[in-house]
């Protein structure tokens, strides 16, 4: 049974995890609370179409349900959920890349200003940015998406990707450099 928004809003994330372990209905609160951001994240990281993203999310939530007792409140529930969804999405992404499946656009006009500002490339179109991010190695694309498109902190990215915060900073800096180089190369050889 799906609990109403009104009931769900009475509980914190940690309380919902505890309640879900004994009463499955409360699991619907977690699902509803994070469904949209997680779906959006899956699409950004895999560039999969909506139906595929929903399937990935469902597989991820099966894992979340099975492992609900392993969650510990010393990290944010959202980080833990993103971690599981991320792993599921990446494994899909690797499979689909081998198959050479289609992709959706990664960026919308609304969410690129921060990234463009940081890259000092305000004139780049979203299409160019999209292509450049798409061509990056997984490890660089992941941190860029989490930082600029999901607006996660370094600590949250560290919890999601299970890497030290220092590594997050290094990867982010390298990812930005790679993007800048890619833009410069294109300007020199249009």
């Amino acid at each position: 049974m799906i609990l109403s928004q009104e009931i769900c809003s009475r509980y914190t994330d940690a309380e919902l995890v505890k309640l879900s372990a004994t009463d499955m209905d409360y699991f619907s609160c977690i699902f509803q609370r994070y469904e949209i951001p997680l779906l959006r994240y899956i699409q950004k990281i895999t560039m999969a179409e909506e139906q595929v993203a929903e399937d990935i999310l469902q597989d991820a939530f099966v894992k979340i349900w099975k492992n609900i007792h392993s969650y510990r409140s010393d990290i944010k529930l959202s980080s833990w959920l993103y971690r599981i969804v991320h792993n599921e999405a990446i494994s899909y992404w690797r499979r689909s890349r081998v198959r050479g499946g289609g992709r959706t656009e990664l960026l919308s006009e609304a969410n690129t200003s921060w990234l463009k500002e940081d890259l000092e490339s305000a004139n780049e179109t979203n299409q160019n940015l999209n292509d450049a991010i798409y061509s990056l190695e997984d490890k660089y694309r992941e941190v860029l998406v989490l930082r600029y498109l999901e607006e996660k902190s370094y600590e949250e990215i560290s919890d999601i990707l299970k890497i030290p915060e220092g590594t997050v900073a290094i990867r982010l800096s390298r990812a930005k450099n790679l993007l800048k180089q890619s833009f410069q190369k294109r300007q020199n050889h249009p």
């Binding site: 499955m24 619907s28 349900w65 609900i68 007792h69």
Partner: peptide, 19 residues
Amino acid sequence: NYQKLEERLRNEGMKPIPK
């Protein structure tokens, strides 16, 4: 989407791994 998930969990008799 949640109803689909719930149906899958119930049909496949999936339970959380004990703490």
